[in-house]
């Protein structure tokens, strides 16, 4: 069945939707249609993808205005007979067509204090960890760094506070490190200051778009916020900190 696609074409912010028609076969995902258009009609159409199976987080885009992985969006989930619009993520600088410059995310990660393990538990240099403790942080470690949550978060998308807020991806990254059964660091002060955790007002938009179904807000950000409160606004602790410094 021939379907109409409106695909954003252009460089560095300037651009417009361009219309394409292509045949959609049974079971096709949006990425298949885009690659088909690329191979048959728009040879120089810029698009990122790798695994085609929702595992690498490369093919993020906005499909009919919704942040999605193109490789996991089946054509039959979209309204039949209507044109499909595909645009690049809007929270990052545009490069070309569907590709954006996501390098800011890599720079942000570099600023977060890395994993720092406690000394080994056994003489052979290994650790003993309970499966429950592994299960507990598993959710956050599933992140495929698609940055869709960053794309949808209004603090980055609308207010453009990239220099003051690390975004949901890196809040749960920090949460994963904080909850790592072997980690000995404390990143709470950093999250409050450089991380800008206070900018998040718990709209939960990030959780809604996460293709890995990570409960970013409830399980990651809110517990971190509670710890910020405990460590910084708890009067006893506050006093302790005054004495220490």
């Amino acid at each position: 069945m021939s379907t109409t696609f409106q695909i954003w074409r252009g460089d560095k912010g300037s651009g417009a939707f361009k219309e394409y028609q292509t045949d959609v076969a049974e079971g096709m995902v949006v990425l298949d249609a885009v690659l088909q258009i690329q191979a048959e009609q728009a040879f120089d159409l810029a698009v990122r993808w790798n695994c085609k199976a929702g595992k690498c987080g490369s093919c993020s885009a906005e499909v009919n205005g919704q942040p999605r992985l193109m490789c996991m969006t089946r054509m039959n989930q979209l309204p039949a007979g209507e044109a499909v619009t595909i645009e690049p993520m809007r929270a990052f600088p545009h490069i070309r067509d569907l590709v954006t410059d996501v390098s800011w995310n890599f720079a942000v990660k570099k600023r977060i204090t890395p994993f720092t393990p406690r000394p080994p538990d056994a003489p052979d240099g290994t650790w003993r960890i309970a499966q429950e403790d592994v299960d507990r942080v598993q959710e956050f470690r599933k992140c495929i760094e698609c940055f869709l949550c960053q794309d949808v978060c209004h603090v980055l998308r609308d207010h453009r506070l990239h220099d003051r807020f690390v975004g949901p991806r890196f809040l749960i990254y920090a949460a994963a490190l904080e909850m790592h059964p072997l980690d000995n660091e404390n990143r709470i002060a950093d999250l409050r200051e450089a991380g800008g955790i206070g900018y998040c007002n718990i709209t939960k938009c990030c959780t809604k778009v996460c293709p890995e179904s990570i409960t970013i807000t409830d399980n990651g950000i809110i517990p971190l916020k509670e710890r910020v409160v405990d460590e910084f606004y708890d009067p006893v602790r506050k006093l302790l900190r005054v004495f220490r410094s």
């Binding site: 040879f43 120089d44 810029a46 490069i95």
Partner: peptide, 9 residues
């Protein structure tokens, strides 16, 4: 066709 920027072809 096209230019050298992000040109998959």
């Amino acid at each position: 066709a096209g230019n050298r920027e992000y040109n998959t072809g």
